[in-house]
Design a protein around this nucleic acid. Structure first.
Lengths: 152, 152
DNA sequence: CATCGAGATTTTCGTACGTCATCACGCTCA
DNA sequence: TGAGCGTGATGACGTACGAAAATCTCGATG
């Protein structure tokens, strides 16, 4: 097994259970606990693994509405706009993109009223030339982290 | 402290560090280890916490291209299309939405060639009436899970 | 109708025990 | 020569269990 292979397998194992103990990981990958510990530290230091998080079901917590907001922005205002969006904690993802629009953002809200209020407040910015909001009817998959290829 | 309050604080603490030990969580929230253990089990059983995951930096792993794909679909083919997208493991999120398009999906690819191949393959489906792909220039924030309100 | 209180239920706690993570060390193998 | 291994020592960890505390239930009472 190559070094990189073990790293990829380790990441994949953690993607399966982010709270798995080093011992169980060692058993699963058939290497020693020491090796797991060393590789995991390396992955964290390299920034491949940036941290750990519970997978929270916001639907179960009464954040029922997800919306995808697309914006056309005055060219030089793009950094300001994305920074503003980023500071809204309910914005899950904010992307600067190519194509018809300049920014695509995904946000979660308690209800349609909460969504309306926040989006209307956002759109008062004069640097926003055009906007387009899609409300999510069904999140088929969301924020799914995929497992890495294992080279044989 | 109300029951719900402790649960929200526990989720928030885990959002800060998803591998935090029960003891450190107990100390942070000023309750016993047993209480943390019980509440955490409950949150997991209720589905509020659906699991745990490392936060993987795909950029560091040579998945450099993120694309947002929007599709207009023949009405009755929507479930098939979303299911197909879901099965592509590199699709991070797949949403059925209101608005101009019927489906919005976010995918990650090794490079633009890989992206092109996969998207072209997808678009051969005759039930897709129209598509629009935006390439992400800059992921300002991505898949950020936000902390819960704590009712006082 | 508001209040009380005994009993049941739920929630929290402390303890104890077996397991785990970490670190340093020297060894093995290719 | 460096990646991986095993060992041993130490402190931290997770879990089970019974006891204690808090909360809820609901009929009785003034």
């Amino acid at each position: 097994m190559t070094y990189e292979n073990l790293d990829a397998k380790l990441v994949n194992a953690l993607l399966g259970d982010g709270r798995a103990s080093l011992r169980s990981l060692a058993e699963e990958l058939d290497v020693s606990v020491t090796t797991i510990s060393n590789h995991l530290s390396d992955l964290e230091e390299q920034g491949v693994i940036q941290g750990y998080s519970p997978i929270v079901d916001y639907d179960a917590l009464e954040y029922d509405v997800t919306a995808i907001i697309q914006l056309k922005v005055e060219g030089n205002a793009l950094p300001d706009i994305t920074e503003t969006l980023k500071e809204h904690r309910q914005m899950i993802s904010v992307y600067e993109v190519t194509g018809d629009y300049d920014v695509i953002a995904v946000g979660k809200f308690r209800d349609t009223d909460g969504m309306n209020d926040q989006i209307k407040a956002l759109l008062t910015d004069p640097d926003i030339k055009e906007s387009n909001t899609s409300v999510v009817l069904n999140a088929v998959t969301e924020n799914e982290q995929f497992k890495l290829d294992i080279e044989q």
